[in-house]
Design a protein around this nucleic acid. Sequence first.
DNA 1: GTCGGTCCTGTAAACGATTACAAGAACGAT
DNA 2: ATCGTTCTTGTAATCGTTTACAGGACCGAC
Lengths: 328, 328
Amino acid sequence: MSRPTIAGVARSAGVSVASVSRVLNGLPATEEMVERVQRAVQELGYVPDARARSLKVGRTFQLTLAVADVGNPVYVTMMRAVEEVVSAAGYRLVVTTTGPDVVDEVALVRGMARGYADGLVISPLRVDEDLIKSIRECEVPVVVAGNVPAKAGVDTIRANSPKGMLLAVEHLVSRGRTRIAFLNGPADTVPGTARAKGFADALKAHHLKSAGETEAMDFTFAAGRASGGAVLRSKPDAVIAANDLLAVGLMHELAAAGLDVPGDVAVVGMDDSELAEQCFPPLTSVNLGSAERGRRAAELLLARIEDSSRTPRRIVVQPSLSVRRSTP
Amino acid sequence: MSRPTIAGVARSAGVSVASVSRVLNGLPATEEMVERVQRAVQELGYVPDARARSLKVGRTFQLTLAVADVGNPVYVTMMRAVEEVVSAAGYRLVVTTTGPDVVDEVALVRGMARGYADGLVISPLRVDEDLIKSIRECEVPVVVAGNVPAKAGVDTIRANSPKGMLLAVEHLVSRGRTRIAFLNGPADTVPGTARAKGFADALKAHHLKSAGETEAMDFTFAAGRASGGAVLRSKPDAVIAANDLLAVGLMHELAAAGLDVPGDVAVVGMDDSELAEQCFPPLTSVNLGSAERGRRAAELLLARIEDSSRTPRRIVVQPSLSVRRSTP
DNA sequence: GTCGGTCCTGTAAACGATTACAAGAACGAT
DNA sequence: ATCGTTCTTGTAATCGTTTACAGGACCGAC
């Protein structure tokens, strides 16, 4: 006893398949027709087949979210926001991990041509010409959550890390700190380069010299710990980390070295993830709006699916600073 | 200029559509045939349509993972593990949030009949007869990550919380703590009931009396903080929390109350999430194997898709204790 | 030379829905 | 009574694949 099809419903209701389809899709029909079809549907437990429907209407009602690592808290926040918007709009969410390589990202974007989803939100860790080309040529709408050149002509949504850096530096300066160091993740990534530049500019704006810059192997807690020694070498009185995981990793090293946070060294993270609130001492962190970015990326994608001819938008989410006890 | 179809490729290669399909699926064909088809595919940039393929072969090469909240770290760990296994097997992962209500879970399971995915891993927060019935009747294979009765006749994979509780209590007792309190999440959830029972049994096994049990509103950090006062009322010298988020929330309250961890109060969490390592002091936590559960759930599902007649397995993942500095 | 068997390829029928089009019913206006 | 309009319903084509089946080529064996 396999699943009933629309033909079975039609037979059981004594009407045509077209009528069944129409009733199911809310097109005009007589009271009696609706009644008969619904009864047959009930009786047989009919559920329309998504595969057949997709083929015919050319849409799957699925959207893809591609991130480098589903475990990173900042992506988790984004994902949760995207999922919320997307499912409220009646779409399902396909989550894909691209890994850190740009070639995998390109393969993913190209693969969208298979039509298994109606759109893509991608947050690329690394960007090159190939990727931009593949995005521009992609068969389905793409929204980039991250930094790609305007000439790519694609909807983008990104954080304003320079501004965020400025907030962090301003805050530290206002608290009397002047020997500010920077703990970055890999500099060859999109956020890595953006934040390095932002840090340099922010210091310049305050006529300060950098108290040292360290490049961690990765944007992870473990990498943050591993870099602790290098960061401390220059005896900073404050450290800004490129994300919360690095900041927390560093704080563990500071504690191990017998240094007080914020007494001896103030620490500022970025992303304002839940970890910032949960760690100890709670971490002052630059909120780069990851939830908002996720939400708006999803909205942008839905809007473009509705109207593919609208001119590409480039949205920048403004940062704010969540001050907690890791700074004086 | 819309996407080329298999018919276009066939025309361009001067062969039949069947031959193109065969070459693409690696069925036997002459050298020359393969050559011609591949050239045409290259030339036109042909990519097969997943929707049409799904309809014909009756499989989508997608699997669904349903959890209550994609933001909860324990689900994130599971999801990452599931994603890894699933994508290695050539499947895509659809992630769905069910919310805390069992009716939504039932609706989800029923909805699988639409055939948009070939299988489902569900981790239900609450279980009732309806849910079990819907799972048993589901059109596609289902693996439950959680606790459902054996009579449901479905593949399950679950943690052994009683054993985990025993590990936690043993550890605390061996460190000389005897006034052990328990901070639970909502008791009407699957993990909530399991852990409450586990705690009671573990104490009994050590001939101890409970130093108080508190039920937090939710399995969250905020709920853990909010319950801090209630937990302390009975002056315990150790607290076991039903998950890491609750434990960390509690630790913040302890710090605010001027109590030292582990000096005054030892704290043990459950799940051994990354947060346990990252918080301060690092949290002793019962590893309930969420990554392994995710991995094995995915493997179980893939195996059942291969062979739908195999007898249902019920796998229990054994816990271990990660001792860190929140206990003496 | 004929017959079988083995390969390879092509034709056409699915898969299960949606939808353009046509046909029929009902109705009011003339 | 006839015609035209509107509204509802049914027939059949279609989406882009896969695959059962049949036809033809080729080969070796008798």
